[in-house]
Nucleic acid binder design. Sequence first.
DNA 1: TTCTTAATGCAACTTTTTTGCGTTAAGGGG
DNA 2: CCCCTTAACGCAAAAAAGTTGCATTAAGAA
Lengths: 185, 185
Amino acid sequence: MSTKERMRFGGRSARIQAAVHQAVNDLSTEMDRAEITVPMIAARAGVTPSTVYRRWGDLSELMADVAVQRLRPIADPADTGGMWSDLEAWAEQYMEEMSSPVGQALLRDVLGTLGESDRPEQCCQFTNEQLGTIAARAAARGETPFRVDEVVDHLVAPLVFHIIFNDREVGPDYCRALIARLKAR
Amino acid sequence: MSTKERMRFGGRSARIQAAVHQAVNDLSTEMDRAEITVPMIAARAGVTPSTVYRRWGDLSELMADVAVQRLRPIADPADTGGMWSDLEAWAEQYMEEMSSPVGQALLRDVLGTLGESDRPEQCCQFTNEQLGTIAARAAARGETPFRVDEVVDHLVAPLVFHIIFNDREVGPDYCRALIARLKAR
DNA sequence: TTCTTAATGCAACTTTTTTGCGTTAAGGGG
DNA sequence: CCCCTTAACGCAAAAAAGTTGCATTAAGAA
């Protein structure tokens, strides 16, 4: 007998998680996020609603779970040959993704989680890793790398702030202005 | 007959809105935000649930509505005699309020609204007005006022970012560091 | 006061969410 | 390989939340 409570990762459990995530992603393209329901997702995934409720608790948790997966970067930042141009390219793509209706919805889902969760922190980690990659690459080239936390504070934070509060249009020009301000220091 | 659809502000309508808001605020102090329900609020406020559903649509809309009210500043920023010390005092109080569990919950409620709404923008406006007051006061003193949008980008945005993503402790020292960076320009 | 109608209360109805219990299958040991 | 334990699932009944039609109340204007 083992005293540890084991979680089960493989097999049926994983299959169902994949099916449910897929169902959410499919439905998200077909209808407004506000009219998606748990029974709807369960039917699409071929499972009973009670399974979804037991595993994820409620809709907002499930949506947040899916959102984190979709916000996870699929590739390293492009290597353009220079640190600042790497950063600019990354920032414009990040801005493009986050300011789109889909990106905004994902951000809301991640941030809207009620109970305790480390999901928002996890998304930060994604960004930190991407910026860390750019900085490390710069160091390998012999450039003086930027400080990741400074880039987060004065590039990522303003971008995300204006996107989620919707109080200002963000575009390539704004990205470049923020980066120019970082370079100037 | 008037062709305009009129909304009714005074009397019963206002009384019910106040009662419902009060009920939400009361319940928020008594239990976790996640277990508050519309029927519960309605019972506390002495109205029927259907009234709440018709006026606010759903729980998240109602919570967001209440949150905006609570995020509205009740007074102008303190006048400490100098622009930067005004800003520092304001920032520390803002940070204190937002990083508290209550403040975080309010932020989530405002940001978590699904459908279209100008609530997040409205909260930005509060901040802009407060900062505008400090800047105007500085100008009246003969000081060169800061640009409000720069303070939002490089003080408010980093603060809010780290609070909602929970990836870093924010404290008085961090506020002062951000302000020092603004002054240095 | 009287009229119009937005907003509410009530109750029936639909949908979602919870819960108890039997069944299935992952992971470990013999 | 088969058996055992139990986490995770399906099913169905029950509870709770959310919706809707209709009668009633009370702002706001004539």
